Simulated assay, not measured.
Amino acid sequence: MWGRVRESGAGLFNALRTEAKTGREVRSHNLFEAAAAHVAACAEDDQERIEETAGWVSPEALSFGVNELACRAVIALARERDESPRTVARALLGLPTA
């Protein structure tokens, strides 16, 4: 049973990671590194970098990482502003307060 759990975990881990070759060196990217680089590229409107970072991990993993980054950013801003995460999220999107 534990063998199956270990195999499933390894399969999931491998699905969330891909290897990018840079010259002779092979470098792996984790989903959070990919999400951070992808969001930064989007904020800078760097289409070449957006396409590069999108290939670092699976689309599902990138989506999860971007979502996690958004949640952490809203929480950090809410603490900094002493406001609720809902208020901060709505303000960032230009929505009226609920």
Score class of each variant (00 low, 15 high):
90 R>D: 05
97 T>N: 06
67 N>Q: 10
11 G>E: 13
48 E>K: 14
27 R>P: 01
17 R>A: 06
97 T>A: 13
24 R>C: 01
68 E>I: 10
71 C>L: 14
75 I>M: 14
62 L>Q: 08
80 E>G: 06
75 I>K: 11
85 P>C: 00
37 A>V: 06
25 E>H: 12
30 N>D: 15
3 G>R: 12
30 N>V: 06
15 A>R: 15
2 W>G: 09
42 C>M: 14
60 E>V: 06
21 K>R: 13
13 F>Y: 11
30 N>Y: 11
82 D>T: 00
13 F>H: 11
69 L>N: 04
44 E>Y: 05
67 N>W: 10
60 E>A: 15
9 G>L: 15
64 F>G: 00
65 G>D: 03
22 T>G: 01
50 I>F: 08
16 L>D: 02
14 N>I: 09
82 D>L: 12
16 L>G: 12
89 A>W: 10
32 F>S: 10
10 A>E: 15
96 P>C: 13
52 E>R: 13
12 L>S: 00
7 E>C: 01
58 S>M: 08
98 A>C: 02
73 A>M: 07
34 A>R: 04
10 A>F: 13
79 R>A: 10
64 F>K: 05
74 V>I: 13
62 L>K: 03
61 A>Y: 00
94 G>N: 13
35 A>S: 01
18 T>R: 15
44 E>F: 07
73 A>L: 09
11 G>F: 15
57 V>A: 01
6 R>G: 04
90 R>L: 08
93 L>H: 09
1 M>T: 07
20 A>Y: 00
33 E>A: 09
54 A>N: 03
79 R>G: 11
18 T>H: 15
95 L>V: 03
41 A>Q: 05
70 A>R: 11
45 D>I: 14
97 T>I: 08
71 C>N: 14
7 E>Y: 03
48 E>S: 03
96 P>R: 11
98 A>N: 12
33 E>V: 04
29 H>L: 15
3 G>L: 13
69 L>Q: 11
81 R>S: 05
26 V>H: 10
50 I>S: 01
70 A>K: 09
94 G>M: 09
80 E>I: 01
